[in-house]
Simulated scan of single mutants.
Amino acid sequence: MSDMKIPGQIPIETLSRQLLRACDQAVLSTALVDGGWPYGSLVMTACDHMAAPLLLLSDLAEHTMNLARDNRASLLLNGTVGLDNPLTGSRITVLGKVVKTDEPNLKARYVSRHPESEMFVGFKDFNLYRMTIARAHIVAGFGIIHWIGAEKLLFDTAGFEGIAAAEADIVTHMNEDHAEAVSLYATSLLGLEPGKWKMTGVDPEGCDLRDGGEVARVNFDKPAANAEDVRVALIRLVKTARASEKV
């Protein structure tokens, strides 16, 4: 089956991943241990390279105790912030099982996305979790509503492993040696206010930026297969950003 597309735009699966990667917080809904009532709580999110959500949770939190009994959950990620009419914007609800993970690269990715979490990540009662997605429901404005299975939603990283291996070096290099370019991504490409923008992550489909409490996402024109492709994509983006400043 061909990808579903928003008329004149991108495949709905791609839009869904972009939304997952762009948001840094969500409403986590779990079933209360006492009675099974739906319980919603605010959590901070990151994603792995497939776009599966990552969560850093305290053992003492109500939602973590709920997950210990039933690890089925949903995450609502909201891309409507700042719109005059939020119902015209995109939001996605992801359903799946929340499973503890000890993978060091995922923990590093989460901390890079949320620097304030570094003080908690080493505590014994804090653990990193990854959502194993079953399916997702996206509403991308009036009449654009789709259920998407995990096999369509998640990015297949087979053959793209080199980017994950090089990610930390790429991010460090961009922040230390090309800070101006990172800033241009935010200001010229995305129209955001100047600030102390930093790159926090890179994956086959784009890169993540942060300035204090504000996050941003820059998407590549096409997936990058390896670290060299990422380099080429980042150079292309900064050329586009500089050209737009001259207009």
Rank of each mutant, 00 (worst) to 15 (best):
V111M: 06
M65T: 07
P86V: 03
R130L: 10
L154E: 13
D156E: 14
M65A: 08
V99K: 12
R91Q: 06
F123Y: 14
G89S: 02
Y110G: 09
N66T: 08
N105H: 07
D102K: 05
H137V: 02
A150N: 09
K152M: 01
T88R: 06
F160C: 02
Y129N: 05
L67S: 00
K100L: 14
K152Q: 11
R135N: 13
G143N: 04
G82E: 06
G162S: 12
A134G: 13
A164N: 01
V99L: 11
E116F: 05
T157L: 14
K100V: 13
L83P: 09
S112V: 05
V98T: 09
L95M: 08
D156T: 05
F160V: 09
T80Q: 11
F142R: 02
R113E: 10
E116G: 14
E167K: 15
E116Q: 12
A136N: 02
T64C: 11
V98D: 10
A164T: 06
E161N: 07
G159V: 03
H137C: 01
L77I: 12
S74K: 02
S117V: 05
A108I: 04
G141S: 02
E167D: 13
T64K: 05
I92N: 03
A73M: 07
E118R: 15
H63E: 06
P115A: 02
E118T: 09
L75M: 12
K124P: 07
R135C: 04
S112L: 01
F123S: 11
L75N: 05
I145H: 04
V98E: 06
N105Q: 13
L153I: 06
F120V: 08
G82F: 10
K97R: 15
T101F: 14
P104G: 03
G143I: 00
L128Q: 02
V139D: 05
H146C: 05
M131S: 08
A150S: 12
T132A: 09
V99M: 08
D70N: 15
L95W: 03
E116D: 07
K152S: 12
H114S: 06
A134Q: 13
G162V: 10
D125I: 08
M65F: 00
F142N: 07
R130S: 01
I163W: 10
E62R: 14
F123E: 10
D70Q: 12
F160G: 01
E118L: 13
G141W: 04
G82I: 07
L154K: 01
S112K: 00
G96F: 04
G162C: 05
K107T: 14
T93K: 11
R72Q: 08
L60Y: 04
T101V: 13
K97C: 09
H137F: 03
K100Y: 11
S74G: 12
G162W: 05
T157S: 06
L60C: 08
L106H: 07
F160D: 01
V98N: 04
G96L: 03
L128G: 01
N71W: 06
N127W: 15
T101H: 12
M65W: 00
G143M: 01
L153Y: 02
